[in-house]
Nucleic acid binder design. Structure first.
Lengths: 340, 340
DNA sequence: CTGAAAGCGCTTACAG
DNA sequence: CTGAAAGCGCTTACAG
């Protein structure tokens, strides 16, 4: 009844203190893990708080404490299988670490990444995890100066006070090439979007390097955004050529799904009999029976854990840090068994 | 140089006021749209703020103002095509409306929805948009009492002070049934997960009702979570029966993808020649060439817009509000053209 | 263990 | 248009 009478959002520590007959300091301490309160006091506070429906105001807490408990997730194209898995893992870990995620969409342009970061600073987030786009050095410095720790995923640059997490993309590309060779591919191809991402570039680089060592030049199709539709177009392009490829490494599963569909539905090619294809990411669709894609698994959980562990650790040193994770190969049926 | 010397996060309105030679009130007004400041004062403030790298502290602002500008998104299984699209649309609209999204994962259990809502209250979010799970009446009241506006998506219940957005699921189910009948299906089936969601139930209900009116009882397979894997199992079950269905309405696209794959890859059935299938959601994969699924499009943008419009509107009246949106049918190739 | 007091950074009447 | 002052709800030394 009492609670009903309050104005909205009105229950504060003072109200609880009054009701419990203690000081507001005691209330504060009751809700601060590790603070010293006698069991008796604590009990009174808890009882009053429950009766009143009190919830610590984290905005006020963030104002006084060094940390707000908020971590910004800066991401473009959240509605894409790989990204949504990563964001999901990240918010999950953040939550179990007692933090909370603030989602900020960007369109990947410098301006929008800058706006996102300013947004994060405005809310005094403890950190920003950048999944898409790339803040330049000046922006990164601005964040650091404002007490934001910066986590860069799949970026090349590493700056003091930031951490970047990277996969062994180049090695994966190399392994894809070796696999295709082992399976007897005579006209291996590379399919990639035009998106100039460090990780995509590294995958392509590793792939080309192994082939070059064998004296073979891959057929290449590189254009478009990183999407299923581009994969379809890439495949259509590749299969229309005179020397049709018999093995394709797609820099991304989404691309690979498009390539496989082009092969099957537009050119009546069988996978893996006529054509082997290898992807990267291991998005859920890669495991669907329509695709059965051999690919490399993004260690999303490990990535999320590494980010959160670093955020929960001691303040960044002055050194740039790097975490390197490995993308394990997962075998399915888009490559002949002999490739294994 | 001056900025470099500051302690982290130290630039406050007072610093700017000092540097600009004005009061801190003037600084505050400069950053408050619509407040009255002379152009001269404003210019001095802006200059000083830029030089110092000042950013309004939204935590403090949220403490004084009635609104924090934060909206909580409470969601399970974010890494699922439909949900990630909706969340993406929602954060987008929220952003353009000048608000920011706080992502809170749940596992759909009552306990985790409650924890999520408490988290939201703790940060004094202006509202919570609940995409998964269902807060009970007591919980909803707690939110309202704490000044949180509540948006419930795809829920049945409607409570004072909350808004719920719903699709015409029942009508869509009915239309699916009519379509199957028109295409000459003699053994129409319903495939659904066991998840007791209002929207899934409504789709099934509409489907059954139309068939019942024609005196036909659909074959039914209902079990499992709402996933591709369940779709595979559902299809396998259905196609193993003596009277094999020749038309299936799957309550969800994810389920439908599994059903189609089971048909094609496990039973060598052709779609739509041997079997028509209709899904719901229009997830990206529904449009992929491997599926070419006839389905109903979730109006994610319209949903997001409706939510944000309501949030930006005047405070909730005491009435429960409902927004009803329509899921348009999209024709592709999983149903014979004659069904159209 | 406990409380009075100062302070976090902002906004908003209130005077002028 | 402008500024001094009070207040938002919390935490954290500082005494006791």
């Amino acid at each position: 009844m009492g609670a009903e009478m309050l104005q909205k959002g009105a229950v504060s520590a003072r109200d609880v203190a009054l009701a419990a007959g203690v000081s507001r300091t005691a209330v504060s301490r009751t809700f601060t893990p590790g603070a010293s309160v006698s069991p008796a006091t604590r009990a009174k506070v808890i009882a009053a708080a429950d009766a009143l429906g009190y919830h610590v105001n984290n905005l006020a807490r963030g104002l006084t404490r060094a940390e707000s408990g908020i971590v910004a997730l800066i991401v473009a194209e959240l509605d894409t299988p790989y990204r949504s898995r990563l964001v999901s893992a990240l918010t999950d870990r953040l939550q179990t670490a007692g933090k909370v995620a603030m989602m900020i969409n960007t369109d990947r342009s410098d301006a929008s990444v800058e706006a996102a970061l300013k947004q994060a600073i405005g809310y005094r987030t403890d950190a920003a995890i950048v999944l898409s786009g790339m803040p330049d050095r000046a922006l990164a410095d601005m964040c650091l100066r404002n007490g934001l720790r910066l986590v860069l995923i799949n970026r090349d640059e590493a700056w003091p006070g930031t951490i970047r997490v990277r996969l062994d993309d180049e090695e994966a590309g190399a392994r894809a090439a070796r696999t295709l060779l082992r399976v007897g591919s005579e006209r291996p191809a590379l399919a990639s979007s035009a998106s100039a991402t460090a990780s995509l570039a590294a995958r392509a680089k590793g792939f080309r390097a192994v082939l070059a060592a064998e004296g073979v030049v891959p057929i290449e199709a590189v254009f478009g955004a990183t999407s299923y539709e581009t994969g379809l177009a890439l495949g259509t392009d590749l299969f229309s050529r005179e020397a049709r490829p018999d093995g394709i490494f797609c820099v991304t599963d989404l691309l690979a799904c498009g390539v496989i569909d082009a092969a099957r539905h537009r050119f009546n090619l069988r996978v893996p009999d006529d054509l082997s294809v290898i992807g990267f990411d291991d998005i859920p669709q890669a495991g669907w029976e329509a695709y059965g894609m051999t690919t490399f698994r993004q260690p999303v959980t490990a990535i999320a854990e590494a980010c959160v562990a670093w955020l929960s650790g001691p303040a960044a040193g002055t050194e740039a840090e790097t975490v390197r994770l490995s993308a394990e190969m997962v075998w399915r049926s888009s490559v002949a068994a002999s490739g294994r």
